[in-house]
């Protein structure tokens, strides 16, 4: 009867059955809120982001926050050991997380983390990639599409320039990185479904 919200940001992934679903959700919300605020601060630091309309800033963050967090925290997933280290410091094996009901989403997260980790990005490259991720988020609801597209183009150019100047002999890295964008969209959808399922039927 335990209530499970096995997200790496959750300090209490397995809650006793005696706690109400609302209590479990509110406790989890307190865990992910600081991370969401950090993504908003990160967005504000992206050159050009604050020139977008207020509405479009919110729309991009709504669809891109989880994707940025997935990139930021992909180092919590250890594909060699097949473990995930939660922000509460506890490390969980793949098998124990599967037992907690994180099967297909977990596999997709491991797969993504392994692919991204294998590219060996430097911290500044990773930050620029996260900016591209955020501005490449779902366009539904965006009003000033041209302004978002222009910002995206500039960020992609900056990322390509940074990567190709550092690794002039590796022409495959940049396209490999862009291929991770659709992976993140798929993960975002799976993740939303999982959380909404908890909200509907914990």
């Amino acid at each position: 009867g335990a209530k499970v919200l096995a997200c790496p940001l959750n300090s209490c992934p397995v809650a006793p059955a005696s706690r109400s679903s609302q209590e479990v959700w509110e406790s989890f919300s307190q865990c992910f809120t600081p991370a969401v605020k950090e993504v908003v601060e990160f967005a504000k630091s992206i050159p050009g982001f604050q020139t977008l309309s207020q509405h479009d800033q919110v729309m991009l963050l709504k669809s891109g926050t989880f994707q940025v967090l997935m990139v930021r925290f992909c180092s919590l997933f250890d594909p060699k050991e097949r473990t995930v280290t939660f922000l509460n410091g506890q490390t969980y094996s793949l098998a124990s997380l599967r037992a907690l009901g994180m099967s297909s989403l977990l596999d997709a997260m491991f797969d993504f983390s392994e692919k991204l980790g294998s590219l060996g990005l430097e911290p500044d490259e990773m930050a620029l990639f996260m900016a591209v991720v955020l501005v490449s988020a779902d366009r539904s609801g965006i009003v000033e599409v041209g302004a978002v597209e222009l910002l995206q183009e500039n960020l992609i150019k900056a990322l390509r320039s940074l990567i190709t100047s550092r690794r002039p002999d590796d022409s495959t890295l940049f396209p490999k990185l862009l291929l991770r964008l659709p992976d993140l969209r798929t993960l975002n959808n799976q993740h939303s479904d999982k959380l909404l399922a908890f909200r509907i039927d914990p």
Partner: peptide, 27 residues
């Protein structure tokens, strides 16, 4: 549940976190 970010409370957190910045732009 067509808007997961709203239903999960994400939109509210984002709007509040952006608020200071947004108020500055409105002025």
């Amino acid at each position: 549940f067509s808007d997961p970010a709203s239903n999960l409370g994400l939109e509210d957190i984002i709007r509040k976190a952006l608020m200071g910045n947004l108020e500055e732009r409105q002025e």
